[in-house]
Amino acid sequence: MTYEFPLVFFTVLTQLGIGLALAAAWKTCFGGAAVPRRLWLAALVATLAGLVASLFHLGAPLRAVTALNGLGHSWLSREGLVFGLFVLLLLLAALRPGRAVTALPAALAGLAALVVQGFTYAPVSLPAVSNGFPLLLFALTALTLGTAFGAETPGPQRLTICLLLVVLLIVPCLWASGSAVMQETAALWRQSAGFWAGLVLTAAALVLSLVRRTAAPAQGVLLFCGALLVRVTFFSATVHTATHLGMPY
């Protein structure tokens, strides 16, 4: 079993960056108070950290730039491109914080990055996740993290956490009634300590938010760790069709 830690950190960190960017853009367009530059900078740093993590996934990181060769067909190439764009727009937003004209494009690029990631990590060879689930998971991860670190009130955070928990609890049940590979994926996820620990941390963030009646970085840290643990499960315990060759599908 490979844990794909570079991909775990890449996806969670970039989703943190996207979440923060969305929160910052929301504040810029609809919030009353001025948006601090550090929120944009935090989004930028998280995204760059994620991109650096992704390099560790490559056999030839020095030739990472050639990953743009496949734009015509490869979602992974497009992921590279859209993140490049996202980083540029985050930089612009950080240079000119508080302006919708820089905030909105950054937020839109972030949303696009989420969508592209949703496609990239949903290959046909992983039947359990070859659907909208990765997109849903990634978007909810971005939103929980974004609201935890960037929202003023706990409401949006509680809502997104609840949604995330519901999705994580329901989806494996759906797999259990699916094909053999999906069933095995469901079983492996349920046997995964990381998955349950991630759920507990996420739920703890919800409890904390209910108890303290505010959105606090502590909840964000819980959510971030929870997201990492669930992501490890996502990358290591999702069964590949090739492992079943010779067996019923």
Partner: peptide, 23 residues
């Protein structure tokens, strides 16, 4: 020209591409 991203390995349902750990 392969950069060793293993995306093909993840994507092929038949497990045809494999990773050369040394190279």
């Amino acid at each position: 020209t392969c950069i060793g991203c293993t995306n093909c390995i993840r994507s092929c349902p038949y497990g045809a591409p494999r990773f050369n750990k040394v190279e």
